[in-house]
Design a binder for these strands. Structure first.
Lengths: 227, 227
DNA sequence: CGCGGCTTTGATGTTCATCAAGTAAAGTGG
DNA sequence: CCACTTTACTTGATGAACATCAAAGCCGCG
């Protein structure tokens, strides 16, 4: 699906407020949109960066393939996130992969067009700098925060992350496997399960397969803080 | 010390190649330069960001003050590094402190001037985007890399970091205390010392107070890789 | 149906933080 | 310049936290 029906897209206002009509038309001409099923890979680590892409709807994981065959999840990204902003200006190739955790729609714009726009339109560049700065800030802070927590604190952290930041609800369907949680917060899948069970026995959460209900958010917050 | 004697500064070519004479003069007018002794604090976490600053000479640490009274070192920065690029576009206040590890010279330019330049000069903005992207890439990669190594691997990593990236020499004076190493690579000072002693006993390094000599770089590399 | 991957639980051992105690070094005030 | 205080460094002993290994049940999928 290509073409220019972005006029009414709610993202236009957010990302391209400082872009002229003419520039915007240029963007739209090269724009592509694609849907991905849960589990499909959107970006493969090592591939050449040809597009500038942002997430319209859905949920994805950004992760690195390590030498030992394991993966390390860097960030979980949702609507309105630029999913390839990380290395787009520093490298020709993707430093990480992106895979859909839920059905997802991605918009693609030609990367050279964006680069030209940065050079010609300083206000757009400024917006991009701010956006990028916020995103990397968040990744750095989250990574450091996780790494200094103990395992119980880490599990509490992810549960609250999904409840508060992603689903805005204390009951939700986990979009990731236990193993993926482990890859995100630096621990083993066995311990993810063990601690989830502990929380269940302690009456802090209810578990039904992938469905999680936080029943004692206060206690979970304390664990996340102190852990 | 203020004023405009930047014409011959080696940093001009690096950072401001896409800046016009007129813009450059504006930069220079508001420029300040300041020297810091080893141990002096350059930036205090929480302070308002009023300047755009970069390191001319020396070595500094960027670190966060944590709630429990401890510190966490995010990055060690050297010449040519923008020391406040991290949150400069995302926040009004510094998210971290910066302290000199060696005698250091810092150049300051008014932040509003830079922001105006970004908006007016797209090529300058593009340079800045690239620089920022590289810096945050490196921080994220380093943080993730450290967090998945065991303690021996982490110590090997920092020793090689100082030898290769900072001093370009296998013998060097450690610019940080054992405690600061611990704050950088997420472990306790006791274990930093213990593992340094192990490496000494194994004949991998020689230690004389703060002076370190790497005598078996190959073995140290293997430990850093596998750890 | 059977295979492989995800999940769960238990047992075991290693790694690491914590505590304690002592030495060395470096700054501080008289 | 010396006694004093503080801070950094070092080593050992101990226990807790965590990874690893093993085994079995579950589920989806070809």
């Amino acid at each position: 699906m290509t073409g220019c029906n972005c006029e009414n897209c709610e993202l236009k206002a957010l990302f391209f407020q400082n872009v002229s009509e003419k520039e915007f038309a240029l963007l739209c001409d090269t724009r592509k949109e694609r849907n991905y099923k849960k589990g499909e890979t959107i970006i493969e680590q090592g591939a050449e960066i040809k597009e500038f892409s942002y997430l319209k709807t859905g949920l994805v994981k950004l992760y690195k393939h390590l030498d030992n065959g394991k993966n390390q999840i860097i960030k979980i990204a949702g609507p309105l996130d630029f999913i390839n902003l990380l290395s787009i200006f520093s490298d020709r190739y993707f430093q990480y992969s992106v895979t859909a955790l839920e059905d997802t729609t991605v918009c693609y714009v030609n990367i050279e067009t964006i680069k030209e726009m940065v050079k010609k339109n300083g206000n757009f560049a400024f917006d991009l700098l701010r956006k990028m700065s916020r995103m990397t800030d968040e990744i750095i802070n989250t990574t450091l925060e996780i790494s200094r927590k103990n395992l119980r604190g880490r599990i509490a952290f992810v549960l609250l992350y999904f409840a508060r930041s992603v689903y805005k609800n204390n009951t939700f369907e986990l979009p990731v496997s236990r193993k993926e949680i482990a890859e995100f917060i630096e621990m083993t899948p066995e311990n993810v399960i063990r601690i989830l069970s502990e929380f269940r026995k302690d009456g802090i959460i209810r578990i039904n397969g992938k469905e999680i209900s936080i029943t004692d958010e206060k206690r979970l917050s304390v664990i996340a803080e102190l852990g």
